[in-house]
Design a protein around this nucleic acid. Structure first.
Lengths: 333, 333
DNA sequence: CTGTTAGCGCGTTCAC
DNA sequence: GTGAACGCGCTAACAG
């Protein structure tokens, strides 16, 4: 109640109020194992801490332990969609429940090199959408960062954390279209090269789905967000016998729809289209866009579990289940 | 070069290598005023620091000075668009050039209260999109946070940092439509109540623009992202003699366009529409959407200047110029 | 068992 | 230009 802060409340203040030493305060507040503190003392310390509004100084703790409770997430300089925004929001909550704080850092060319960043924040873990160099990884590890992950990127020794859900997305698109009776699929690949680390696993998933459903491999075409160019792609697909296309995301899907109209055709009768993300304008498309959504909350929980396990030195949790992705059926497919 | 890190490099290492005391290292590296260090010593310290790859521990510095170089930006739990994403990216760069590090924290209900957050990070400044309580503000100030700003929100004593650019956006929409000969405007207000802190200043700008251009006040209608409901709004506008509408953003604008089609009409002949943001799918709309964009880099630089000034105790810089906003002309208006 | 004393981690800054 | 203390929480060693 009495929160008439003027200066920072330190553990010394709590100790004084509870009539114990600072060490005791620390033991109580951290539930230190192998230290037995009487219930009475414990209660007095907890009460004092609460009534003073005590929050330990992260700086001091970090200085002492060599590692902060911050999980640093480096954003790429390429456009990230609302999907990633939602993921981060959920990740923030999931980490908070584990006593970790998410700090997101939007990259920018004018920025200092990332080494500056982690040296400055001494994070417990670093997540990134872009690749780290080997030198960077070893340097961070040496500096005490428990987990360093590139969420996406070329699948090397082990697959990336976010690959699985991306693959599931692509697979589900193919399954949905196959279920509608389509046998010849197209794949609308994004024009921005920087998106390939997301696009490749999605396309791989679609390929897998085609194999499973006994369909031929999809006809892949790059589709920029431009009606005229998209119309050319549509014409080419039609000439190849394609009757339905999986798009990298809803934006590309809407470009395909614009291309269909521009070509004087109609979706889904002339060409069915399915996107990814269910962005707000997907339902405003002409026709409203069928799309695949991901349960970002579930992915976030998995990611948080992976981070926590790495920090505690425990093995990583089981991968996300296949039902994190789901089709939102509208008129376009 | 020799960056074979194994442990953290500390100022003691630099001091040893340069053959001076730690105090001297600190003075050299911080360019401390009123401390005269000979050029020779200076050079040796700088060389040692560089060759060791020395980066001061932020934790120790924060512990000592009571304030970190982190600028904390709290995101709201309501959907933020790519506009804000771009702003943050530029802000990150602009702050970095001033020696400050941006840490973005996506809010979430499951999160701990924000007091936990700033107590833990001891940021130099806190920016937020939501309102702080008076108690929170005083507590943060007392804890050493130099600047606490709610970027948007009800304009109280002084207007919010981001109000001006929002007003300029709304004003420019009205001016553009007036320039096209329209005399009776509509305003498409977003359905999500949490967006009103952005929507209100935009609408206020449109009202100002109408006054300046000698037009009647705009006919305001709430437009959800749903074609059927949007069609009703379109019909009502038409009945009221409205020939052009300013939309809160591109998504709402695309809803209006969907409503126009649903009502069996055509844009821009039956109703002209102008959006805000120039999201990627705006050019894919039917017809392609005319919209207003903001130079987020300029806004970010202004914001960074405000933060820097507050930390240094200097007066705030001049507000952003009117030309941070610009019309992207396409077919819808 | 219960709790205390003491020193560390690292950059900053005052006094000599 | 240097020695030394400080900021604050953690934890090994130790006393009652």
């Amino acid at each position: 109640m009495a929160e008439r802060n003027t200066k920072r409340v330190t553990s010394a203040d709590v100790a004084r109020m509870a009539g114990v030493s600072r060490a005791t305060v620390s033991y109580v507040l951290n539930d230190t194992p192998h230290q037995t503190i009487s219930a009475g003392t414990r209660g007095r310390v907890l009460d004092a801490a609460a009534s003073l509004g005590y929050a330990p100084s992260a700086a001091a703790r970090t200085l002492r332990t060599g590692r902060s409770d911050v999980v640093l997430c480096l954003l790429p300089d390429w456009p990230i969609g609302s999907e990633v925004g939602a993921l981060l929001t959920h990740l923030s909550g999931a980490l908070a429940r584990r006593g970790l704080t998410l700090a997101v850092h939007p990259a920018s060319r004018e920025d200092r090199p990332i080494s500056e960043l982690w040296k400055v924040l001494t994070p417990a873990a670093v997540l990134a959408f872009e690749e780290f160099s080997f030198a960077e990884i070893t340097a961070m590890r040496a500096a005490g960062v428990a987990l360093v992950v590139a969420l996406v990127g070329p699948a090397r020794p082990e697959p990336r954390e976010l690959h699985l859900s991306q693959r599931l997305v692509g697979r589900l698109q193919a399954e949905h279209l196959a279920g509608l009776g389509h046998t010849r699929l197209g794949y609308a690949y994004p024009d921005d090269d920087r998106l390939r680390y997301f696009a490749d696993p999605r396309l791989a998933g679609t390929r897998e789905g085609c194999v499973d459903q006994g369909l031929a491999q999809p006809e892949v075409r790059t589709v920029p967000l431009d009606p005229a160019t998209a119309a050319e792609a549509v014409t080419a697909w039609r000439a190849a016998g394609v009757t339905a296309v999986c798009a990298y995301n809803d934006e590309v899907a809407m470009a395909v729809l614009a291309g269909v109209r521009r070509a004087g055709l109609n979706a889904p009768v002339d060409l069915a289209v399915i996107g990814v993300d269910d962005i707000p304008v997907a339902r405003l498309a002409e026709p409203p866009l069928t799309t695949v959504t991901t349960d970002q909350a579930a992915v976030a929980v998995h990611l948080a579990g992976t981070v926590e396990a790495a920090i505690a030195g425990r093995p990583a949790p089981a991968p996300v289940p296949a039902d994190v992705v789901r089709v939102v059926r509208r008129e376009s497919a």
